[in-house]
Design a protein around this nucleic acid. Structure first.
Length: 237
DNA sequence: AATACTCGCAAGGTTAACAG
DNA sequence: CTGTTAACCTTGCGAGTATT
């Protein structure tokens, strides 16, 4: 029922709650509508995805980018997708990868963090949406890898497309931050990236997923997982 | 020797719980 | 309601290791 008593809440709070929910629903629907009305992605996107060609000679030169920096058209299209993505951070989202295919990124767990204050970061712009972090942007970049695979340098190239990254930053600094972020991402409980030892390449794993497949919290760290395991053991004994 | 991934820890800031 | 404390998350950092 909608009576305050049924929820055990004061009427005033219940009204605010309903208000919040209505707003969330409205923004979600509007954003979904905009996503639906996005034009077709620019065909310049299609870069050669033949792994043989791309990764030839990678072993010799390790930190080598196998993709060109995006042109203005591709970057502009990505900015539109990126904006929509962070309007509905609690939903899964599909980016257009450099090979033209759709690639899904996991929902951000931002439930119960409405007041999320932006934390300053030397690589991130100050006027970004509150949920944008380095981890998100590196994940987005990895999702856009052509063929869902590439070098770390490729991820560095792609993350520079983001509208939330400051332009005036050295390759070395980007490299350092991306390295740390990939490190974090790949040992999460349900990792979105994986390092292929044999080929020395990073692989993005979530590209084919549907929204429903993200229901288990994919962003929980191994630290959490460990703690949950310990709690489970305690409960069993 | 140089490079890049692995692993663990700690600083700094945030959230939640709680006593007054 | 407010100040304090403890737990927690993100990020930075460095030692360790493997591959070239």
């Amino acid at each position: 029922g909608t009576s305050p008593e049924a929820w055990g809440l004061p009427h005033r709070l219940l009204v605010r709650l309903v208000d919040c929910f209505a707003n969330w629903l409205k923004i979600g629907q509007e954003t979904l509508q905009e996503i639906g009305s996005l034009p077709a992605p620019p065909m310049i996107l299609m870069q050669p995805t033949d792994a043989e060609v791309r990764f030839k000679g990678i072993r010799a030169q390790r930190s080598f980018s196998t993709i060109r920096p995006s042109c203005d058209e591709v970057r502009a299209y990505f900015h539109r997708e990126e904006t929509l993505r962070y309007l509905i951070p609690d939903r899964a989202f599909s980016y257009t990868a450099l090979d033209g295919r759709k690639s899904t990124v996991a929902p951000l767990r931002c439930i119960g963090k409405p007041s999320a204050k932006i934390r300053d970061h030397f690589m991130l712009k100050h006027n970004r949406p509150p949920h944008v972090t380095i981890l998100c942007l590196v994940r987005d970049a990895a999702a856009r890898l052509p063929g869902s695979i590439g070098t770390r340098a490729d991820v560095c190239t792609l993350i520079r497309d983001s509208q939330f990254i400051v332009e005036d930053i050295s390759d070395f600094q980007v490299n350092q931050v991306v390295s740390g972020a990939l490190d974090r991402l790949h040992y999460e409980l349900d990792p979105c990236v994986q390092f292929d030892r044999d080929r020395h390449l990073w692989v993005y794993l979530h590209g084919e997923r549907e929204e429903e497949e993200f229901e288990n919290d994919g962003t929980s760290s191994r630290k959490n997982w460990k703690r949950q395991g310990e709690m489970l053991e305690r409960n069993l004994s």
